[in-house]
Amino acid sequence: MTDQDILDVFTRILRELLANDSIVLRTDTTRSDVPDWDSFMYVNFIVAVEMELGIKFGVADVESFKSVGDIVAKTRALLG
């Protein structure tokens, strides 16, 4: 998967989670840029990504993510 493929998956998941089709994620997007993306929905997002892609982030990874780009990079590494 390219970074763009991963971004597309993330965008779809977050749209479905928040029932908001206007969301478009970019690598520099942060949680505060997206309405309703609170800490609860952040955990849901992480869970949904893990289940959909069959990967598992470490707790240190999740704690260090600053932007969507960080999650994309880690996902790419885990998908190897």
């Binding site: 998941i13 479905e16 989670l17 029932a19 849901n44 869970v47 949904a48 289940m51 959909e52």
Partner: peptide, 8 residues
Amino acid sequence: LGFLETIQ
């Protein structure tokens, strides 16, 4: 239904 589908 999966996790995401349930929430939807």
